[in-house]
Amino acid sequence: MISKIKFCGIRTVREARNAEKLSVDAIGLVRTILSARYITRSRAMKICRNVPMLMKVGVFVNDTLSFVCDTIKCARINLLQFCGRESTKFCDSISYRFNIPYIRVIHIRELSHNIINRINRMEGKYIFLDSLSGYGGNGMTFDWNRMDMLDNKYIIVGGGLSYKNVGALIRNYKPHYVDVSSGIEEGKRKSFALMKKFVKAVRR
């Protein structure tokens, strides 16, 4: 199985179109103001209009119900990603209302047995394993050991990925998705050259 690719923190139409050129599977649009990669409502709409066939993931951190719903309506989001302390009830209610699945982010330093058991009980859910520091895009990895103990078939791995290490992750653990943000950036902007290197490393 070839892992799917999500480019997160897309901020411009050009970056989105470059992702589309490389046939990545999804892009992440960060709507939480807590992130340096935050984009406005109008920017999200513009990006989505220009890549209608590409899967768009709305990324949120402890945002209000009305804010999330407005983003879904205006930007035609295909998938939701909740990175904060949102309750399962909150996530499920939005998912049910708009018939859109969601990703639940778990910030970890290492995969303890308690975390493994928790994830294995979450059948049929997209689980995003990210490093403990901040809310993504920090370039830090977590300890991948024991990932082979996970039964969930919808594991997404992010945190510190780049073209230099993503191949080893895929060979050893075969996650459903790999997520990259800072690993394809130069000067805090997405680099098409690094995008290409990352895609090549995943699909070789």
Rank of each mutant, 00 (worst) to 15 (best):
S3M: 00
I5W: 04
F7W: 15
C8S: 12
G9R: 05
I10E: 06
I10K: 05
R11V: 08
V13C: 02
V13W: 06
V13N: 01
A16G: 01
R17G: 03
R17V: 07
A19R: 09
A19K: 08
K21D: 03
K21A: 03
K21L: 05
K21G: 02
L22A: 11
L22F: 14
S23Y: 11
S23T: 13
A26K: 04
I27N: 01
V30A: 07
R31I: 14
T32I: 12
T32S: 15
A36R: 14
Y38R: 07
I39D: 00
T40M: 09
S42N: 07
A44N: 04
A44F: 07
K46G: 03
R49E: 15
N50E: 15
V51M: 06
V51A: 02
P52D: 07
M53L: 15
L54W: 07
K56T: 08
K56H: 07
V57D: 05
V59R: 01
D63N: 04
T64E: 05
L65Y: 14
S66C: 05
F67A: 09
F67N: 04
C69V: 09
D70N: 07
T71P: 05
T71S: 12
I72N: 01
C74F: 07
A75Y: 11
I77G: 01
N78F: 09
N78A: 05
L79G: 02
L79S: 03
F82W: 02
G84Y: 04
R85L: 08
E86Y: 09
E86V: 02
S87L: 11
S87H: 11
S87T: 15
S87Q: 10
T88R: 11
T88H: 13
F90I: 08
C91I: 14
C91N: 10
S93C: 04
S93D: 05
N99Y: 13
P101F: 13
P101E: 12
Y102Q: 02
V105W: 00
I108H: 01
I108L: 01
I108D: 00
H113A: 12
N117L: 06
N120S: 09
N120E: 09
N120H: 10
E123S: 02
G124R: 07
F128T: 04
L129C: 05
D130W: 02
Y135S: 00
G136Q: 12
M140A: 11
T141H: 11
T141R: 14
W144T: 11
R146C: 09
R146S: 13
M147A: 03
M147E: 06
L150D: 03
D151R: 11
D151W: 08
K153R: 15
Y154K: 15
G160M: 12
L161D: 00
S162V: 12
Y163I: 12
K164P: 08
L169I: 10
R171G: 01
P175W: 07
H176A: 04
D179A: 06
D179R: 02
V180S: 00
S181A: 11
S181I: 14
I184R: 01
I184K: 03
E185S: 05
K188V: 13
K188N: 15
R189A: 11
S191N: 02
F192H: 05
A193M: 14
L194M: 10
M195P: 01
F198K: 01
V199F: 08
K200M: 09
R204K: 12
